[in-house]
């Protein structure tokens, strides 16, 4: 797996995306996505603006991965989340004792967690935690 180094331009460039959850909304078709860009990937419109993605949402689909890439301890739960307020987000579930607690429609929220270590430096990003009901 080719990973960018912590000092890679990728990390600097995506700071607002990663840490402020800054995305994009198309003024023509309403599509919400990330990272920010000049052209809507859904309809091709140039009429796009910044959009703050929500921290909360519901699991749209998921899988329980018993063969993740190295440095990740199986099982991990990959999810696609329907964010409250629009847009979808791809990520991992954290702090779940039993992966079977995750199902379609489960309420989740983003929490900032260490996602990997590269040459001794921690790299942070968002993971999803299950929201306690009631």
């Amino acid at each position: 797996m080719v990973q960018p180094a912590p000092a890679s331009p990728l990390f600097w460039r995506f700071n607002p995306e990663i840490y402020q959850r800054m995305g994009m909304k198309c003024s023509d078709c309403g599509h919400i996505t990330y990272p920010r860009r000049k052209i809507c990937p859904e309809c091709g419109s140039f009429n796009v603006k910044e959009h703050q993605l929500s921290k909360t949402g519901k699991v749209h689909t998921f899988c329980i991965n018993w063969t993740p890439p190295p440095n990740l301890e199986p099982p991990i739960v990959n999810v696609i989340v329907d964010l409250d307020g629009g847009g979808r987000y791809q990520g991992l579930i954290t702090e779940v004792a039993n992966p079977e607690d995750v199902t379609i429609g489960t309420k989740v929220e983003m929490v900032l967690r260490k996602v990997m270590t590269d040459r001794g430096l921690n790299i942070y990003g968002y993971k999803f935690r299950l929201v306690e009901e009631g």
Partner: peptide, 15 residues
Amino acid sequence: GGGGILGLHPSWMLG
């Protein structure tokens, strides 16, 4: 698993 080759941040492509 790698986001780097796609030009995406690795935290989005983890696992």
